[in-house]
């Protein structure tokens, strides 16, 4: 377990151009950033590409990072968010059908029919999540993938614990409404 104080010391070294220190920060955050990007873009290929670019950019602009009570991860998430926004813009300009957009079928454990239904439900839910605002998507990843508390999420997103709680409930409500709409349409 790494303490906040230890991370600050490594960050100071990285800010002074220490490659080893930056490498340590990379190892610590690569999985978290990858997860965030993966759930926002929906395919591993683009998730890898964007994650790599997040860290290249972070290394080149590390002197722009200022430690004012904002966690280093929040700064990385902001870079990731900007790159994802560019990715969406490029995709809107040059639309293409990705193989990963097609629901994947897994037959392990459950009967094929049940598995297909579950995969379709899962894909439908993920597509709705990807249509939510970036802020709400970020909240869902931090809550369900990283299992962070509202206070920790607040520190990363620059919001109070109460504001996160309220945003979370509004997000769940929006998700439910969208799901109900889809269910009604399919009936």
């Amino acid at each position: 377990m790494v303490t906040e104080h230890e991370e600050d010391a490594v960050l100071q070294r990285a800010l002074q151009g220490d490659k080893e220190a930056f490498g340590w920060l990379y190892e610590r955050y690569v999985e978290r950033i990858y997860n965030y990007v993966y759930y926002r873009v929906g395919n591993p290929h683009d998730a890898e590409d964007i994650t790599a670019r997040v860290f290249y950019r972070a290394m080149h602009h590390i002197h722009h990072y200022t430690q004012r009570g904002v966690p280093f991860s929040a700064w990385l998430y902001r870079i990731a968010h900007n790159l994802i926004a560019n990715w969406h813009r490029d995709r809107a300009r040059h639309p293409e059908i990705s193989l990963s957009d097609v629901p994947t079928l897994h037959y392990k454990g459950t009967a094929p029919e049940a598995s297909i239904v579950q995969d379709q439900e899962k894909e439908a839910l993920f597509q709705i999540i990807r249509r939510l605002s970036p802020e709400r998507q970020h909240l869902l990843v931090l809550k369900f993938v990283e299992h962070l508390s509202n206070a920790e999420i607040g520190a990363i997103m620059g919001r109070s614990e109460g504001a996160i709680k309220s945003l979370y409930h509004r997000t769940l409500l929006a998700l439910r409404q969208e799901l109900e709409k889809i269910e009604k349409e399919s009936e």
Binding site: E48, T51, V145
Partner: peptide, 17 residues
């Protein structure tokens, strides 16, 4: 949580270095 490929993590790490 989805784990990134080990090879990818290693390659980016080397490139950063």
């Amino acid at each position: 949580p989805v784990a990134p490929r080990e090879e990818f993590v290693r390659q980016v790490g080397h490139r950063l270095h």
